[in-house]
C-alpha cells in the first residue's frame, strides 16, 4: 500500500479528515522550505503538497504566481525541489509528499528520469495541473512503474462521463477543484461541492480531497464534513509572502494558521463522530 493510501486508511480508522497544506518550494528562500514542511507536520498536516515553481503557472491566481516568481528568482529548479524532499525525508518517513506543478519542468527532465529521482527522494504522488487524463498515458505508466501515485483533478465543469474516466486513472486520491477559477480566487459554496462529491463517490472508492477557496478554520471545517481531505494553498502562501522579510517568524506564523484549521476540523470531526 502506498504511503498516501496508508495515510488515508489510518485517518479513516480514527474518524479524521486529512489536512493538506500547499506551499511553493523555495518560496521565499530555498533554505526556508524544509524547516517549514516540518513545522506544518507538527501543526497537523497529514499530507504535504509541494509546488514545483514554474514560469507560467496559468491555472494559479496572483498569490501562487508571485510565490513562483520569488522561488525562480533564487533559481529553484525541479532538481532542487527533489533535493528538498530528500532532506525532509531524513527526519520524516511517514508524511506523504505530493509534488504539484506543470508539465514542462517534468518533460524537460524526462518522465523516466524524473520518476526515478522522485522515487529515490521519497515523493509519493504527482499532480500536473495542465495534463488531463487524455494526455497522460505515458506519464501514468512510468509513475506506476515507480510506485508514485498520479493525482487527477475533477472540476465543477467535469461531466459524469469524464468523472468515470478520471476515476479509472486516478491513484492515491482525487482532487476536487471546488470553484470555477484559479487558485485563491473566490470562496467556495459547500452545498454545491457536496452535490458534486456525491456524484463523484458513485464512481470511485478513492478518498476525495477538496481545494481552492478554503481560507480559514470555518471554511476548512465546513468542507471537512463532505471531503476526505481539505487542501489549503493560497491562504498559507499569502502568509509566507507577508513574512518574506521576517524569515525567522515565518514557519511559526504559517504553522499557526494551519493549526487553526486543524483544530476547527478536529472539532467538527469529533462532533460528527
Amino acid at each position: 500500500m502506498s504511503r498516501i493510501s496508508q495515510c488515508f486508511e489510518n485517518l479513516k480508522a480514527d474518524g479524521q479528515t486529512a489536512l493538506i497544506p500547499y506551499v511553493t518550494a523555495g518560496d521565499p528562500e530555498p533554505w526556508v522550505t524544509v524547516p517549514l514542511l516540518h513545522a506544518l507536520v507538527d501543526a497537523g498536516a497529514d499530507i504535504i503538497e509541494l509546488g514545483i515553481p514554474f514560469s507560467d503557472p496559468m491555472c494559479d491566481g496572483p498569490v501562487i504566481q508571485k510565490a513562483c516568481e520569488r522561488a525562480l528568482k533564487n533559481d529553484v529548479s525541479i532538481r532542487h525541489v527533489l533535493k528538498m524532499v530528500k532532506q525532509f525525508r531524513e527526519k520524516n518517513s511517514h508524511t506523504p509528499i505530493v509534488l504539484m506543478g506543470y508539465a514542462n519542468p517534468i518533460e524537460a527532465m524526462g518522465y523516466g528520469n524524473f520518476a526515478e529521482q522522485a522515487k529515490e527522494a521519497g515523493v509519493d504522488g504527482v499532480l500536473t495541473v495542465d495534463v488531463p487524463p487524455e494526455e497522460s498515458d505515458e506519464f501514468r505508466e512510468i509513475m506506476d512503474q515507480n510506485e508514485i501515485d498520479t493525482i487527477y483533478l475533477v472540476a465543477p465543469t467535469t461531466s459524469a462521463e469524464r468523472m468515470q474516466t478520471i476515476a479509472s486513472f486516478a491513484r492515491g486520491f482525487i482532487y476536487y477543484v471546488s470553484i470555477k477559477g484559479v487558485t485563491g480566487a473566490a470562496a467556495l459554496d459547500v452545498s454545491e461541492v457536496s452535490g458534486k462529491l456525491s456524484q463523484l463517490r458513485e464512481k470511485t472508492k478513492l478518498p476525495v480531497g477538496v481545494g481552492f477557496g478554503i481560507r480559514d478554520g470555518k471554511s476548512a471545517a465546513e468542507v471537512s464534513e463532505v471531503a476526505d481531505a481539505v487542501v489549503v494553498g493560497s491562504t498559507l502562501v499569502r502568509c509566507i509572502e507577508e513574512h518574506a522579510d521576517r524569515l525567522d517568524e515565518l514557519p511559526a506564523a504559517v504553522a499557526g494558521l494551519l493549526a487553526e484549521m486543524r483544530h476547527a476540523i478536529n472539532a467538527r470531526d469529533l462532533a460528527s463522530a
Partner: peptide
C-alpha cells in the same frame, strides 16, 4: 482526433477548461 500533429499539439489545460 486528439488534436495531435505527430508528437505535437494536444490538449494541455486544467480540468476546469476541458468541458469548454
Amino acid at each position: 482526433k486528439r488534436g495531435h500533429f505527430g508528437p505535437y499539439g494536444g490538449r494541455f489545460v486544467g480540468e476546469t477548461l476541458m468541458g469548454a
